[in-house]
Amino acid sequence: MATGGRRGAAAAPLLVAVAALLLGAAGHLYPGEVCPGMDIRNNLTRLHELENCSVIEGHLQILLMFKTRPEDFRDLSFPKLIMITDYLLLFRVYGLESLKDLFPNLTVIRGSRLFFNYALVIFEMVHLKELGLYNLMNITRGSVRIEKNNELCYLATIDWSRILDSVEDNYIVLNKDDNEECGDICPGTAKGKTNCPATVINGQFVERCWTHSHCQKVCPTICKSHGCTAEGLCCHSECLGNCSQPDDPTKCVACRNFYLDGRCVETCPPPYYHFQDWRCVNFSFCQDLHHKCKNSRRQGCHQYVIHNNKCIPECPSGYTMNSSNLLCTPCLGPCPKVCHLLEGEKTIDSVTSAQELRGCTVINGSLIINIRGGNNLAAELEANLGLIEEISGYLKIRRSYALVSLSFFRKLRLIRGETLEIGNYSFYALDNQNLRQLWDWSKHNLTITQGKLFFHYNPKLCLSEIHKMEEVSGTKGRQERNDIALKTNGDQASCENELLKFSYIRTSFDKI
């Protein structure tokens, strides 16, 4: 039985969820670079991206490699990797027998973001014989899940209580170790020597080791999670996991709180800001991140802002960003909400898709409305799209047979046209069989910064309504002859009103 693990408890099935942008060198404390989270699957090609990484700022997932063999891993080693800020997950990587050479110096898994409450997941690794993470000293947050690894031993010899604050939620089941077939031998045991430290858990006094050649490092209890030197002297209180010299914040392997210019500090002093819960960055760093993602459509890219001495992905609820200094300031009234469309555009074809934009005031991208039916549609669209004030790209209304009016965009005031449909149009209306009105132009103002209007096959939309939009939106004169079809717009509506004058002759039985 794995020490510190839980057996036999019912657990939810383990679901495996399925960018080499360097964020800056980590400095003297770390020998390499800070790398983003990685999802490495199918083959070993991307694994080489770990070569210079000291910190993975995010998670590391290595999974679904069915053609790899043990010899493929023999020359692979990433000794610079010290810390993973989120979680480490391995799933069905064939041929991998140990992690001792792959990650010989991995010391800390912070667990800032977890995989279903777990910071370390080893699942269905069919050839893994031992973990071998002999320098792993601290899992700051989260638990361990090690399950269905039929060859995995050296679990009962690990004292997880020396690595985690609590072992109650560890789930370590259905491994070879369960069948008591392992016969784990710690260093020196074969020669009758006791080389590794022994600890007591559940009444068992057991030597602690990761492999037959690597003991588990056990520091004096007084050192807590700070770690200790090879001689057993406690590291500085700002260290986490390990250090090369005692009581020196510049000799830590990793930091308990924050890293700044080669030393570990309790908090980031001005003019620095907390970033990702582990390091200090200056304003320029946060500003660069903001600008890199301002026009990016890459998933996970955030326009970072500053709030409460932190550089964070977005302002919290009730705050909006001051564009001059990136500071989050309290909103006066309802907060603006910028919604970034991942692929640059979004099609609204149902109430469900409209709900995804609920509360958005600025759309960074283009909207395509293609709704053919739905219950209580006008009210639903207004509830979900009615706060949109600005669209950076274009607005396209296409084959939306259920629409009679666009009044559900009740606050839309600006279409920038930074991206144009077919390279020309910022407003595009095609084949809307029941569209009769755009907006009530006596109450609604709309500016279209650039781009043209396109109207074709809107049989109940009168040309007068379209011409009014040209005047109000500032697009009059931009359109070419064929942009607004004269014969297919309003051709099934009563669009022309003329005053009919009647004269009559009164007659009676005795007068003409």
Rank of each mutant, 00 (worst) to 15 (best):
G300F: 13
R110I: 10
C153L: 01
E97R: 15
N149K: 00
G318L: 12
V200F: 09
H212L: 11
N42L: 03
V253M: 07
P70F: 06
E130N: 11
K148G: 04
D169W: 11
N257Y: 08
F123T: 00
D86I: 02
H48Q: 14
L327V: 15
N282D: 03
D247I: 15
T199Q: 07
I56Q: 00
D177S: 04
F285S: 06
L120M: 11
Y87A: 02
C153A: 01
W160E: 00
V121Q: 01
N308A: 04
N149E: 01
F123P: 01
K129I: 05
C239Q: 00
H236R: 02
L90P: 00
D288V: 14
C235Y: 01
E207N: 07
C311K: 03
G333D: 13
D101P: 14
T85G: 06
L47P: 04
Q299N: 08
N282L: 06
T211F: 02
I109N: 00
G95R: 09
V305T: 10
L152C: 05
Q61V: 06
P334N: 09
V265C: 06
K251L: 11
K148W: 09
L332I: 09
H48Y: 15
V253S: 08
D178G: 05
R279N: 04
I82W: 08
M125K: 00
E147L: 13
C223M: 00
D165H: 05
T107V: 11
A119N: 03
F115W: 15
G58F: 00
Y259A: 08
H212N: 15
C286D: 03
P70I: 06
M83P: 00
L60Y: 00
L102T: 03
T250L: 10
F275A: 04
N42H: 03
V200N: 06
F116Q: 02
N322G: 07
P31R: 06
Q303R: 06
D169A: 12
G192C: 08
H212S: 13
V121W: 03
N175H: 04
C264Q: 01
H214W: 07
D184Q: 04
I158L: 11
E180V: 05
L332V: 15
S143T: 05
N309P: 05
I146N: 00
T157W: 02
C239G: 01
C243A: 00
V121F: 00
L136G: 01
C255S: 00
A190N: 09
L152M: 15
R41I: 06
V218W: 10
H214M: 11
P249K: 03
Q303C: 12
P79W: 11
I146R: 00
I62T: 01
C264E: 00
P334V: 13
N309F: 14
I306M: 05
F275L: 07
G241S: 14
C293Y: 14
C223R: 00
P79A: 14
C209E: 01
G142D: 02
P336V: 13
H302W: 10
S296M: 08
S284M: 09
V144N: 02
N202F: 10
N150Y: 05
P249A: 11
G188D: 13
D169M: 14
E49R: 09
N150A: 10
Q61L: 05
F115Q: 05
K67D: 06
M137D: 04
I222L: 11
L44Q: 08
C286H: 01
P249D: 03
I84S: 00
C293Q: 02
C268T: 00
C182S: 01
G183V: 14
N43L: 07
F66A: 13
I306D: 15
I122T: 05
V218N: 08
L63Y: 03
C53I: 01
H214F: 09
N179A: 02
V34G: 08
P271S: 13
R297Y: 11
R41Q: 04
S98C: 06
Y171F: 05
I201D: 04
H212Q: 09
S284F: 04
